[in-house]
Design a protein around this nucleic acid. Structure first.
Lengths: 140, 140
DNA sequence: ACTAAAAAGGACACTAAGGTCCAATTTAAT
DNA sequence: ATTAAATTGGACCTTAGTGTCCTTTTTAGT
């Protein structure tokens, strides 16, 4: 349901939030999040395009969040790499349906809307502060 | 977010519910639902495997729903062709997390749970009875 | 029996997602 | 300047999802 890329992007961003504002190398992120390093590199470039992370080359370089974890929602990250495609018009393009959706597609879009809402409701900062849970991505 | 296969399967099943209990040929379904006929054939075989539809060869044959539209939910159809994979254990397999999910994956699974719930809440019969909407898959 | 109508099945092609590898480039420190 | 640390970019590979085509098999009616 959620793509591997979304999963990887979220892991990376959580890791960055945990260590903010210290830059993390792609290799470090890859190791602790268990994401293939070369592929993570591509995912991070996608996040850079959407101004979620900054990338800096060379010694002392690495990846950092552009903004504060308190201002970054799960939805921001998801939409940056694999946007939730709401159903806004009839997929069969039936002219009589006009702007409206039939009962089927309205239900499907409602489900998408709920996912969107759930993801918009949580910031990275809230993820880290979440009590009585395991620490994201971490042992013990 | 939802695969093409899910979309196609739902269209087909809606069409079948609209015409139940009369058998519909794959070609008929393909035409009205705008799904590639040869591919629809494969999708329907998937639905047959999960006892959602019956297929019958030869003259007068075609596709029919196994049960009543009132007993078939959207979730049944979705799970038959492309199951919603709930997150039940830590995807990173961190031993200290044990059965529990971290805050991130708990949120992701909650979103999946909501989708599941939304899809389980609507039967095919309810889709067809839905008032003040366009008729599913139909012009006018 | 024969025929026409339908699904069944297999082989294949195309595309996008996921993943790998390596050479080139930037950067900071010495 | 040189070196080491890091991302960048491009090419490539593999796999799964989607889609096509054609032959075979089943079925009902005549």
């Amino acid at each position: 349901m959620f793509s591997q890329t979304v999963e990887y992007a979220l892991r990376a961003v959580v890791h960055l939030a945990q260590h903010a504002p210290k830059p993390q190398t792609t290799a470090e992120i890859a190791a602790t999040t268990q994401v293939p390093a070369a592929y993570l590199s591509k995912v991070l470039q996608g996040l850079r395009g959407k101004e979620i992370v900054k990338l800096r080359r060379g010694i002392g370089g690495g990846v950092t969040l552009v903004g504060s974890p308190a201002d970054l929602t799960i939805l921001d990250v998801v939409n940056a790499v694999d946007p939730i495609a709401r159903i806004t018009t009839c997929p069969l393009d039936l002219s009589s349906h006009g702007g409206r959706l039939c009962a089927l597609h309205r239900r499907m879009d409602n489900a998408l809307m709920e996912v969107e809402g759930a993801f918009r409701a949580t910031t990275l900062a809230e993820l880290l502060e979440d009590p009585n849970q395991s620490v994201p991505l971490c042992e013990e």
